[in-house]
Design a binder for these strands. Sequence first.
DNA 1: CAGTGGTCTAGACCACTCT
DNA 2: GAGTGGTCTAGACCACTGG
Lengths: 235, 235
Amino acid sequence: MSRWLSDGNSVRGVPATPRYYQAKTRLLDLVNELPDNTPFPPERELSDVFGMSRTTIRKALDELVLEGRLVRGAGRQGTAVAPRGRIHRIGLDALVQDLAAREQVVVRTIGQDVVNVESVLVRGDEPVGVRSACLRASRFPGFAERYDRTTPLRRFLSDAYEVRFGEVCPWCTTALATPRVAGLLDVRPATPLLSVAWLGHDHRGAPVERSWAVLRGDRARLTMQSPRLSAPARP
Amino acid sequence: MSRWLSDGNSVRGVPATPRYYQAKTRLLDLVNELPDNTPFPPERELSDVFGMSRTTIRKALDELVLEGRLVRGAGRQGTAVAPRGRIHRIGLDALVQDLAAREQVVVRTIGQDVVNVESVLVRGDEPVGVRSACLRASRFPGFAERYDRTTPLRRFLSDAYEVRFGEVCPWCTTALATPRVAGLLDVRPATPLLSVAWLGHDHRGAPVERSWAVLRGDRARLTMQSPRLSAPARP
DNA sequence: CAGTGGTCTAGACCACTCT
DNA sequence: GAGTGGTCTAGACCACTGG
């Protein structure tokens, strides 16, 4: 009883094949035929040629952009066919350890007892993710002044404050880019992102780090450790 | 009415705080104050009260729906506050082992030598994900007839075909719901989903299984093994 | 029946970038 | 200056649901 599966006519007032989806299909064919970086027709021209309003065309283009097939530039740059093969692999442990190539590392104080370390993950001159860590300021006195912003965070904490990290159990979901994150990642607000979060404890179980990271789904893949693969216990 | 309450800078023609985002913030406050399943004001009323067009209001509502804070119903049902606490944890190894509660397990043959096992992951009467596995038919003769569709897939393969599975290295990204998957998950097409994929090999390294799973980001969290947390090697 | 959300239109102004 | 994408408006029609 899927409400959205249209099997011919319409469901819930939604036409079986919305016009924007017809446009998307045709535009996708066009994208597949064009080489990387080929300039794409302007939205107003497509609107004219397809006989649809610019709004409808934009909805189709929006999805192709979200799927990483088209790239939109500012001003006269216009839309273009996205370069293929720009997917970067990012390891989960590298993300947690903060070993990825970074830029724009910012340290700031939030409220009374929280220090935030935010960095933009870069791969091949493109921003692919944002990593944000929150630390208890009282646990790491003078952190903002002492941290050099280049050493991987966990290594620095280990070296400078003698933290021995315990286990971590990250979890993964999707999130929409806030305007702020969208600016850092050069995507539109509300772009769906891959979100990873974790809590860091020291070896005695005391909380040390509360962190999250978001990755551009069209530019990054998160690779993980293999789960335990012994055959599951049988009753 | 002054349209551009520009409260600061802009990037690429996008105001720092778009109007729809201001609406979203205010609407989110409202959502947080209301109990689960409370009917939400109609879009036209919000449009009137906020002094914004219905299109702008809808854009704000769209994001709240994608984030699982609001639920929209058909016809006179209208919009309502989504029940909270519906986030289910799904373990990565459970996903790979196919241990999650399933419904609609379908086995079909694709092409010459591929058998596909597709199942809908269910948690608390809601579909939260789809799992799809592709096997080489010649490696598992008679699979479609022998598989009982209730035993976890990997356990069945181990028991019935004496497969000893080797390591697995899953990767994670985002995807947009195809119309077909959207129907299975009861979401709109193009809804962003969490996507997990992996290749299964036996202990000798021969490929056995090519699988992927998608999860509703507003209903499921993927939990993972902790990465290696020994301090990274220093040069 | 009235009212809801889903889609679509034909405009408009803005900030930006290339020529 | 011209043309691009990003946002926004004020309408419209549709299919659907409840009283």
